[in-house]
Design a protein around this nucleic acid. Structure first.
Length: 514
DNA sequence: CGGTTTTGACCTGCGC
DNA sequence: GCGCAGGTCAAAACCG
């Protein structure tokens, strides 16, 4: 290219002046043929002066060059048009997402404020209440309010109206998080109004019971926005339901977040300080399981278990349990929101609907909505490649499997072949030889290409840090409330069905340390 | 010397 | 009631 004189340039004029009188077309063709056939490998300025018909040749070169440039222009225009079309589509999608985000955001915060007010009121009405975490909740503001749902749930007959907003009925296909929050808001509102009028706890209890016994009223409270939701409003019309709700809340306190990630290290650093307090040989796994306790603050209840996968020893399984009772360091908080959003989305009944034939379906588009709604900042470059929710384990366990795409795959092109359809994917019993059979698998929550790339590039350390932070995120408990009540119905059925396949089934071997 | 790790003993829950 | 397995305790060892 550099060797070709510019069209209309001085070089061309110069050759024309010099060789204008000669018009040997054969020679011209020979020269052109040589040029076009590439036999003259380099068309330099020196070549033009040496040739008998450089002017004609250069014109032809210019013509060819011009055609080439035109072709490139056409190609550019096509690409530009495609880009512009993509931009328009993206813009439209952004507008739609913004609208959804705003709506969810406002509802979410309204619910937070109502719940906070409600629980604060309960706290102040019980002078003997020594719930330290309640105190923290009040002192730290709304950031911690959801962390205490578990404690609050101990007062089951007072919190049940909140629970009911996250009923199992959220499994219904068209039951959105916004609707759930609206119902919660209105029910909490109603409870607050009644409670303000009441002066004694018995009266308050009667009010809650009245609410439980009159689901139709609650339905009306949920508003007439969507009549189809009338039959989706929670119904706690028996003491058994209340007891079940109480059990659900107890489970929440025992909820776990588990992460599978590839790592050579014995324990991946997650920004927190841990002290090992035990090690055991677990059944069916030659690798010992290590038990760690958070030592960043005295009395922090968070514990974690670290164990290598029996089938693939490059996979490190880290399970977190409990909520930190202290602020997390930046290192641990960096990716917290995204992972928390993943857990929230996974657990949120609003995102999961029921296909009675195939199990649960989750809409991948909703993840980003919820992530932005609950965390108010762009997603870090972290996403779990696979998440699952154990329904039959003793404790509800969210498992984020980051090994599927966060592997050492030498061929990045295979990446895309592994992807599930972008819009929806089924949650079905896992046949994986690594994942426990009792864990419901949500294949790939994050299906856009950007997040796929992020998954491919994220480091195990970061993953672990993010997961540890899940347990500290105030939204996590809230999401658990929704999710566990959501899956309770399924849980009971599936736990019965899966009892014989439970991965925690014990064998007769003695794994005790000796 | 204080904090952490190791490791055998102990506790608890569950199934038979 | 017994055995098994998971989980925790706590004394000793280890480490910086």
């Amino acid at each position: 290219m550099d060797n070709v004189p510019a069209a209309g340039g001085g070089g061309v004029d110069l050759t024309n002046d010099r060789y204008d009188s000669d018009s040997n077309h054969d020679h011209e063709h020979v020269s052109l043929g040589r040029i076009l056939s590439g036999k003259r490998s380099v068309v330099s300025e020196m070549d033009f002066f040496a040739d008998e018909k450089p002017a004609a040749a250069s014109k032809e070169i210019l013509r060819v060059k011009k055609e080439s440039v035109q072709n490139e222009d056409e190609q550019l225009h096509i690409n530009l048009a495609a880009l512009q079309a993509d931009l328009v589509k993206t813009s439209v999608e952004n507008q739609r997402l913004k609208g959804m985000l705003n709506q969810m955001n406002s509802n979410y915060h309204a619910l937070q404020m109502h719940l906070f007010t409600y629980m604060q009121r309960q706290h102040t009405r019980r002078p003997g209440n020594d719930h330290t975490q309640n105190h923290e909740m009040i002192s730290n503001g709304k950031a911690r309010q959801f962390m205490d749902l578990g404690q609050a749930a101990a007062e089951k007959d007072e919190v049940v109206s909140i629970q009911s907003a996250f009923s199992e009925e959220t499994r219904s296909k068209d039951f959105s998080i916004v609707e759930s929050m609206e119902i919660s808001n209105q029910k909490i509102n109603n409870s607050n109004i009644d409670l303000e009028k009441s002066t004694d706890s018995d009266h308050r209890r009667r009010i809650v019971e009245r609410e439980l016994e009159s689901p139709e009223q609650s339905t009306q409270l949920a508003g007439s926005k969507n009549n189809n939701n009338n039959n989706k409003v929670p119904r706690f019309n028996s003491s058994r339901d209340v007891e079940q709700a109480s059990q659900t809340m107890a489970m929440i306190r025992k909820a776990r977040v588990s992460v599978r990630a590839r790592s050579e290290a014995t324990m991946i650093s997650d920004g927190c300080q841990w002290r090992k307090y035990g090690q055991k040989m677990a059944k069916g796994n030659p690798c010992p399981r290590a038990y760690y306790r958070c030592t960043m603050a005295s009395g922090c209840p968070v514990r974690k278990q670290v164990q290598r996968c029996a089938q693939d020893k490059t996979i490190l399984m880290t399970t977190y349990e409990g909520n930190h009772n202290h602020p997390l360091p930046v290192a641990a908080m960096g990716m917290a929101s995204t992972t928390s959003a993943a857990a929230s989305m996974l657990l949120s009944g609003s995102m999961v609907s029921t296909d009675h034939q195939h199990g649960l379906i989750i809409n991948s588009n909703d993840f980003h909505d919820l992530a932005k709604t609950t965390h108010h900042h762009p997603l870090p470059n972290f996403s779990p490649s696979l998440a699952s929710l154990s329904a039959s384990a003793p404790f509800p366990t969210v498992t984020l499997d980051l090994t599927t795409h966060n592997n050492h795959n030498p061929n990045p092109n295979q990446f895309h072949h592994q992807q599930m359809p972008l819009s929806q994917f089924h949650l079905a019993s896992s046949n994986s030889s690594i994942l426990p059979s009792n864990i419901l698998t949500l294949p790939h929550l994050f299906s856009n290409h950007q997040t796929q790339a992020a998954v491919a590039s994220v480091s195990p350390d970061t993953i672990s840090a993010a997961t540890a932070a899940i347990t500290t995120d105030p939204n996590f408990a809230a999401a658990l409330v929704a999710a566990i009540t959501n899956i309770m119905g399924n849980t009971h059925h599936q736990s019965h069905n899966n009892n014989n396949n439970n991965s925690t089934t014990r064998n007769s071997s003695d794994n005790k340390n000796s």
